[in-house]
Write a protein that binds this DNA or RNA. Structure first.
Lengths: 255, 255
DNA sequence: ATAAGCTATAACGTAACGTCAGAGTCAAGG
DNA sequence: CCTTGACTCTGACGTTACGTTATAGCTTAT
């Protein structure tokens, strides 16, 4: 009943290496592994693989795909609706390019010059990219209202003024420690140590900070200017630096 | 009148780095460069860029694209016809995927299982890939340069100055050895031995030198005066002598 | 029991750029 | 005339999503 790598690979038209890779980065881990270490995929895994291929077709990176389909708020049906819309846009783009090809042929035949705006407007991806970003943003926001959020609400509701002060001071200390090591780059052991402490601090004070959430948090620090401004008060560029360091930290966790 | 990098980049919706890259690999070099080293693109360059983007859209690698559009037999109009066909296939593929998405939605709503063949057949690329290969093959043949050319490009691209020096010196040595035996005629064993070494040298340094290619090369040495002149620098008449010796060598191989 | 065909991990390679760093260029405004 | 900000250059290392190769263990049919 379970499928081995090559069976899956042949069935869906991808390489064995691709499946290995997806396993490695934690995007699609087989439901089980036998005693010899062979990966065994179930129908459920294939369903997930289909999802992955949809996202891939639409130009999402594997990391984004992973973040989206693993987020607690992920709604498969809603995702598929979104896919359909994006695919329609993609088709429109191809139609535009086809028109552009036809026009170019005509311009050759008729000896007519084509102007440059005309020549390149069909390649425009901004519409599609916008939709993608919106989509990614949407799903990210959704999980702001999930378990982590609830847990946080519950914990913080009981905090006294003194508790808050302690938490803020601890955060302050960690930020400053990171700033003091900034010159050594985001991958530096001391920085990574501090980043680990930071994650623990969040888990202790607010909610269970999973690697996924932690990564998302890092992204937020650069994408939301309110966060950026607040963090950069410690040192200009800290937000970006922190995001990078958190990213590296999460990457290392997965290995 | 000429455009600078950023102007082009903004006009077509790609990055400056991409243009740098295309220049670097020789895919799209600007028509001119000013005294400060600034790249200056003309309308003609933009036309070529449009071609490149078409090929890119269709999934050709930059190397393939380069080979195709630089080949003497390249016919722009014919290429565009081909593009149109491929784009139509691509659109069909997207239509299939859209159908697949719809079916998946239905299967969720209806609680119906979708079987695995069904699930993945839309992602199939074989049709498109086949067309691409056919296309690439077609234009390649027109050129006459085949795999040997490609192999040579690949090998030689990695050579350092030292490598080149070694190769040239080895060729030099072989030529001189042949000259030293010229009085004994092209069929002489020592000459034939040297000719064999020469063929091996070509295979090692450039491309798999089959007997057919080797024979053709010999012909080239007398038919193309640039080759003749170069070889006759060692000794007047060497080119003709070498051709004869290579001819005999190949005849002997076939027996 | 042995070959053929599959599996594993590890590690290096590749394509098409992205992303700095360090330095020169150029047009507009003070 | 000089400065400043936006633009340009050339390296050169980083990244993504795998491809490729090497080495070794497993499994199945003859």
């Amino acid at each position: 009943m379970p499928y081995k790598v090559k069976e899956v690979a042949d069935m869906v038209g991808i390489s064995v290496r691709t499946l290995h890779h997806y396993d490695q980065i934690g995007l699609l881990k087989p439901e089980s592994v036998n005693s010899a270490g062979y990966r065994l995929y179930t129908d459920h895994d294939l369903e997930k693989l289909q999802q992955v291929l949809f996202f891939k077709e639409l130009g999402f990176s594997l990391q984004e795909t992973k973040d989206i389909i693993n987020s607690p708020g992920f709604d498969r049906k809603n995702a598929l609706q979104n896919h359909k819309e994006l695919l329609l846009k993609k088709r429109n783009r191809i139609d535009e390019i086809i028109k552009s090809v036809e026009k170019t042929i005509q311009s050759i035949e008729g000896g007519i010059e084509m102007d440059n705006k005309e020549r390149f407007k069909a390649f425009d991806m901004s519409e599609i990219e916008k939709h993608q970003e919106k989509y990614a943003e949407e799903t990210k926001q959704k999980y702001g209202h999930t378990d982590a959020y609830k847990e946080s609400q519950k914990k913080t509701s009981k905090y006294t003024k003194e508790d808050w002060a302690a938490i803020m001071s601890r955060g302050d200390e960690i930020y400053k420690r990171i700033v003091s090591h900034m010159d050594k780059g985001p991958a530096d052991p001391d920085v990574q140590q501090a980043v680990g402490d930071f994650r623990q601090h969040i888990t202790d004070s607010f909610y269970t900070c999973t690697p996924e959430i932690f990564r998302g948090l890092g992204e937020l620090y650069v994408s939301d200017e309110r966060f950026t401004a607040n963090i950069d008060k410690y040192k200009l560029g800290l937000a970006q630096f922190l995001r990078d360091a958190m990213h590296i930290y999460c990457d290392n966790l997965e290995k």
